[in-house]
């Protein structure tokens, strides 16, 4: 079995050599920009996991977040159905690729996925609340950063996993900034510093963080919500004084209120991005 985290840990020297080559081949201006971007990622880079309101509520109430394998095992124990059957049903057409990636690796069924984030609400197309993990929760040997979405990036045309490409890219936590720079350098010269967060993590692309340590609310540094959505929830709140909200608006506001309450109880700040 291949150990993804060991690959990442053993990649330090190669990543540093590539980073040095990048800086030395760049113009003085670009090298300075790349170095500032690297410093920003190193100081502000956190793993983010986007969650929808009901998932976030479950996480805050239950205190844990299950991956697909843990979820299917617990469902299997409740129902008596084989966990594998539940995973197949849950993933449908995407079952083969997902399990092919995870089971290629040692401890692959413990994998959890997030994105490297230096600000902003993350990939809101999947989920609208962005949970930011503390740096200390990710600063351990069981994490690897990959230059992009693993399912899109590391499969060859014949469906086999591209281990060589993955071995080249995988970075440990200490070198997440290098991974980010090697990926984003071509765009950095045309991107103002204010746009770096969106360059690094957006709906269309991100540096993927694969980690195995279960996360609990204690590991959460903050939860972010987009400012437009935040204001909209308060607009609904105001309308609620005039007339009864529709069920779907009330669900959104009530979930938001419960999330705020649970965040307060767990001393987790809510940030508006």
């Amino acid at each position: 079995m291949v150990d993804l985290f060991e690959i990442a840990a053993n990649n330090r020297d190669a990543l540093e050599a590539r980073f040095s080559a990048l800086l030395s081949s760049a113009s003085t201006d670009l090298a300075g920009t790349v170095q500032r971007f690297a410093d920003t990622v190193l100081s502000h880079g956190r793993v983010s996991v986007n969650m929808r309101p009901m998932s976030l509520l479950s996480f805050l109430v239950l205190g844990f977040h299950q991956n697909i394998y843990e979820w299917s095992r617990s469902r299997g124990e409740e129902s008596g159905r084989p966990a594998e059957e539940i995973i197949r049903e849950k993933l449908g057409d995407f079952y083969a690729k997902r399990v092919a990636f995870d089971r290629y690796f040692d401890k692959g069924e413990t994998f959890r996925y997030g994105a490297l984030n230096i600000g902003g609400p993350g990939a809101t197309v999947y989920c609208d609340y962005c949970t930011i993990l503390q740096n200390s929760a990710s600063d351990n040997p069981e994490i690897a950063y990959l230059r992009s979405d693993s399912l899109k990036t590391y499969f060859k045309a014949d469906g086999a996993l591209d281990e060589a490409a993955l071995r080249e890219d995988a970075a440990p936590h200490s070198h997440r900034h290098v991974c980010a720079c090697l990926k984003c350098a071509p765009e950095l010269s045309a991107t103002a510093a204010a746009g770096w967060a969106a360059l690094l993590c957006s709906n269309s692309d991100f540096v993927e963080a694969v980690f195995s340590t279960p996360t609990t609310p204690v590991d959460v540094e903050s939860v972010r919500i987009e400012s437009s959505q935040y204001r909209e929830l308060f607009r609904y709140g105001f309308e609620n004084f005039r007339e009864k909200l529709t069920d779907e608006r009330r669900n959104l506001v009530e979930a938001f209120v419960l999330i705020k309450r649970l965040l307060r109880e767990n001393s987790i700040p809510l940030e508006v991005a």
Partner: peptide, 18 residues
Amino acid sequence: RVCEDIIEKAVSLHGFEP
């Protein structure tokens, strides 16, 4: 409107049900 490939990630990792 979203890219076609988003659905794979949505189902594989973000709890969407096909």
